[in-house]
């Protein structure tokens, strides 16, 4: 029997339906319905941000090594469910060959960022020469709750490429999935749920970006936005709404299938540099005596 699956959303480690009770049908290329998906609302955004805020504290304080372990576990879980993802990508109109390549790239990308978890700190942090009796050093700290509008033109690779650097750096995330290609996003939430990732670190909503992004952009408890190929209109609107609490708005209109579009620069986009001036006895003490 062919059952039309109803995909739910992912908030705080749970899979609720949207509080609005709305849904929309996702269709294949022939216009045939392949699944029902939640049409999330503003209140779902509110709930997701609340969950992300709650999760942020302990996630950002975990040891970097442990964050790396959890990301690596995600890659393992994704590897084990490859077939399902390939099938979903094909349902959404992609060829078998391309779908396989996309999943392989996703797994590689997760492993790549898992490796960065306990290494970016050394590269982004520094000891700074100053002209006074201070030991002066700068360290990277996660920005906070990051709103991610997933690349709308891809089913999984965009989402993975945006999400991984955000959480590798100790942030928590609220992600709006691709409106037309949402199936893998929710199946990916099932992967996250079985990867020891604490509840609320990643929250995934499906529905209309035009409807939800403004709420996310003006939310005072969201510290940064990550947009990819959102179009000029929506990007500008988000940038304007983000002004009130001086959110970072990171716009990367990349082709995420390219291996060159991964790297520490995506992690550092969601890090704040904290500089400490620590008094010492004498100028120059910061060179050889510490």
């Amino acid at each position: 029997m062919n059952i039309l699956k109803t995909y739910k959303i992912y908030i705080g480690g749970q899979f609720p339906r949207t509080e609005s009770g709305r849904f929309y049908a996702v269709k294949d290329q022939d216009g045939k319905a392949i699944a029902n998906v939640c049409l999330s609302s503003k209140k779902d955004i509110r709930n997701a941000v609340q969950a992300a805020r709650k999760a942020f504290g302990s996630w950002s304080e975990r040891s970097a090594f442990n964050r790396g372990q959890i990301l690596y576990r995600m890659a393992e879980m994704l590897e084990g469910r490859k077939a399902q993802f390939v099938e979903e990508l094909m349902q959404q109109g992609q060829s078998l060959e391309h779908s396989k390549i996309e999943i392989e790239s996703c797994i590689e990308r997760i492993v790549y960022y898992a490796g960065w978890c306990d290494k970016y700190q050394q590269i982004l942090s520094s000891v700074n020469p100053v002209n006074s009796s201070h030991f002066n050093f700068s360290v990277a700290e996660p920005t906070g709750v990051v709103g991610v509008l997933a690349e709308q033109s891809s089913g999984l690779i965009g989402l993975v490429s945006q999400l991984m650097p955000v959480i590798a750096g100790g942030n928590s995330a609220v992600l709006i999935a691709s409106e037309q290609l949402p199936l893998c996003a929710i199946t990916f939430a099932e992967v996250l749920e079985t990867s020891d990732l604490p509840a609320g670190v990643v929250n995934i909503l499906t529905g209309s970006a035009i409807e939800m992004l403004p709420t996310l952009a003006e939310h005072m408890d969201v510290n940064a936005l990550f947009l990819s190929n959102a179009g000029k209109g929506l990007t500008t609107e988000a940038q304007l709404l983000a002004v009130d609490n001086v959110k970072r708005v990171v716009v990367k209109d990349e082709d995420w299938t390219k291996e060159s579009n991964q790297g520490i620069r995506y992690i550092s986009s969601f890090q704040e540099i904290k500089t400490t001036w620590h008094p010492i006895e004498q100028i120059g003490g910061a060179t050889s005596s510490y």
Binding site: V49, R53, H219, M220, N245
Partner: peptide, 9 residues
């Protein structure tokens, strides 16, 4: 304000 608030403020 119509905007969701943050405990930070």
């Amino acid at each position: 304000t119509g905007k969701y608030q943050s405990a930070d403020y």
